[in-house]
């Protein structure tokens, strides 16, 4: 579920970063305004979700599955706090283990902390009047499956990842649609346990949530594949190389040695060699100085 760097085109990764920053930023604002949510609570509950993710569930066939908890976070804490809790976990996984990349972190946060949480929460709210167990099951199942489909969309639309979008989307969707049943089952078990043993706690997360911002986030989730698609159309896949070519830096001839064989059209060959030599010297000297300063203080 964690996309490493290298799978997404820069343009798509950038769009996902912008969308994520908007929603997480809004969530932070909402949580800061809330009376019964606070930083220690969110820190501890995020740690609890992180710990719960470490459980290694045996499933038939000798393999195992992990619980993710996005929908659960939304159900327990409400969508805003839930998305922050998941964001905290996903960020730790990236910065502690390198699970998922840094450029791709925006997309990973979008899928696991925004899509999974908001979709899961919304489904639960929609269905809970019929059955809490059933609602939590569907929320856990479809929340994770939708998140997986978004992974498929983002990677599938990226030119770097050669598979056609429909292949990536259906591979992710089908696989997680099956695994998601376990996520649903566990989510349902947790929610109905909490409901049956502490019904008094139920209402903390069910504080009234105004419709407008949620609808806005819903529209953003729905439109995010379109944004990603548009970003791809702009043809932005290798901007640095484009820049390099435009300012005429890129070498047109074949590569001949260790150091760049450098010429700028219309410029003295002598200066070109000088610049490439300078680059080599800079790299060498900075390495030498870093080494020299290694054992300082």
């Amino acid at each position: 579920m964690h996309i490493p760097d290298g799978y997404l085109d820069l343009s798509i990764a950038a769009v996902m970063w912008v969308l994520t920053a908007l929603v997480i930023g809004l969530s932070l604002k909402k949580v800061a305004e809330s009376k019964n949510l606070n930083v220690p609570l969110l820190g501890v509950i995020s740690a609890a979700i992180f710990a719960a993710q470490m459980l290694n569930w045996p499933i038939p066939g000798g393999t195992s599955a992990h619980f993710v908890g996005g929908a659960l976070a939304g159900i327990l804490l409400g969508p805003y706090a839930g998305s922050i809790a998941m964001a905290s976990v996903v960020a730790i996984q990236a910065f502690l283990y390198g699970d998922g990349g840094l450029i791709a972190l925006g997309a990973n946060l979008w899928n696991m902390a925004v899509v999974n949480v908001f979709v899961g929460w919304y489904i639960y709210r929609l269905l809970e009047r019929y059955s809490k167990f059933g609602a939590a099951f569907v929320a856990g199942w479809l929340g994770i499956t939708t998140a997986a489909i978004f992974v498929g969309i983002e990677a599938g639309l990226s030119a770097s990842f050669r598979y056609p979008a429909f292949v990536a989307i259906s591979a992710m969707g089908v696989w997680h649609g099956v695994l998601g049943l376990i996520e649903g089952f566990i989510t349902a078990g947790i929610v109905s346990y909490i409901h049956s043993s502490r019904p008094d706690l139920e209402e903390t997360s069910n504080a009234v949530i105004s419709k407008v911002p949620v609808a806005f986030i819903g529209v953003m989730i729905l439109l995010s594949p379109v944004f990603a698609y548009l970003a791809e159309i702009v043809g932005y896949s290798e901007p640095l190389e484009n820049v390099a070519e435009e300012i005429g830096l890129a070498e047109k001839q074949s590569y001949t040695g260790i150091f760049p064989d450098y010429t700028i059209p219309g410029v003295n060959e002598y200066i070109g060699t000088l610049i490439s030599g300078a680059v080599g010297v800079v790299i060498f000297l900075s390495l030498a100085f870093m080494r020299q300063h290694a054992s300082a203080d």
């Binding site: 820190g43 995020s46 740690a47 992180f50 710990a51 905290s88 730790i92």
Partner: peptide, 9 residues
Amino acid sequence: IIWLTYRYT
């Protein structure tokens, strides 16, 4: 929040 998550995991 991230720090507390790390701290209490």
